[in-house]
Design a protein around this nucleic acid. Structure first.
Length: 199
DNA sequence: CATGGGATTGACT
DNA sequence: GTCAATCCCATGC
C-alpha cells in the first residue's frame, strides 16, 4: 500500500492490516495478528518523545520500524499517522504463504503453525533484521500489499495487547477470527465491525 | 558512565 | 507454570 494509506488513525490501519500480505525476498505471509501503539499511551516506545530510537516512529508513514527486543529478537512495525505523530502497528503473526522451506531452515523447525506465530518468530522466518529499519513498505525490501481476494471479508477480533505492563486495558489488538496461526494468548475476544475494503 | 528494564522465545519443572 | 538469554537505549548521577 502507498504511504497515504498509513497516514490515518493507527487503530484503523491496525484493523485494516489484518489479511494483508507481507513479503521479504522469496518469503511471504498473511497478517493474522497486529497491535496498535501511539505516543499518547505509555506502552508505546514513542511515549518518551523524539529520541534516536523513536526517530523512525515519528517520521513519515508507510515505512518499517524495526527494533531489537530483549536483546534477542527483531520486531516489525508499520509506521502510521502523519509525521510528528509517533504511532505504529506491531505485526504479531503471519499465516505463511510462500518460501516455507526457507522459513523452516531459518526457524529450525517444521511445524507450519509455529513458523510465524509470534512477532520475533516472523522476522526470523522472513529474514527481517534491524537494517530494515526505516525502509519503505511499498518499495521494499519489505513489501506490504493489499488483501488477496480470499481475505477481503475476513472477520476481525478485538482484544487487549499482550506482553506489556502499561496501558494493558486498551483493546488495541486485532486478529483474524478462527486463524490457527496467531500467537499464544488469544482469549475470548469481541468481534469488530466488518473490516473496510483495502484500497 | 552505571543502571534498569523490556511490544519475546524456548527450554525446563 | 517458571526462568534465563542478551543488548540497546533512556535515564540519572
Amino acid at each position: 500500500m502507498k504511504p497515504s494509506w498509513y497516514r490515518r488513525p493507527v487503530l484503523d490501519v491496525a484493523r485494516d492490516l489484518i489479511g494483508c500480505v507481507v513479503t521479504h525476498g522469496e518469503c511471504s505471509g498473511v497478517i493474522v495478528e497486529a497491535e496498535a501503539y501511539h505516543h499518547s499511551e505509555p506502552a508505546s516506545h514513542a511515549f518518551v518523545g523524539l529520541t534516536p530510537r523513536t526517530t523512525t516512529l515519528f517520521g513519515p508513514p508507510g515505512v518499517a520500524y524495526v527494533y531489537r527486543s530483549y536483546g534477542v529478537h527483531a520486531m516489525l512495525n508499520a509506521v502510521c499517522e502523519p509525521p510528528g505523530v509517533g504511532a505504529g502497528v506491531l505485526i504479531r503473526a503471519l499465516e505463511p504463504v510462500s518460501g516455507l522451506d526457507l522459513m523452516r531452515t531459518r526457524r529450525g523447525l517444521d511445524d507450519v503453525r509455529r513458523l510465524c506465530s509470534g512477532p520475533g518468530k516472523l522476522t526470523q522466518a522472513l529474514g527481517i533484521t534491524l537494517s530494515d529499519n526505516g525502509s519503505d513498505l511499498q518499495r521494499g525490501p519489505i513489501v506490504f500489499s493489499a488483501r488477496p481476494r480470499a481475505w477481503r471479508d475476513v472477520q476481525i477480533a478485538v482484544s487487549t495487547r499482550i506482553g506489556i505492563t502499561k496501558a494493558v486495558e486498551l483493546p488495541w489488538r486485532f486478529s483474524a477470527v478462527g486463524s490457527r496461526y496467531v500467537s499464544r494468548g488469544v482469549r475470548a475476544a469481541a468481534v469488530a465491525s466488518p473490516a473496510e475494503p483495502v484500497g
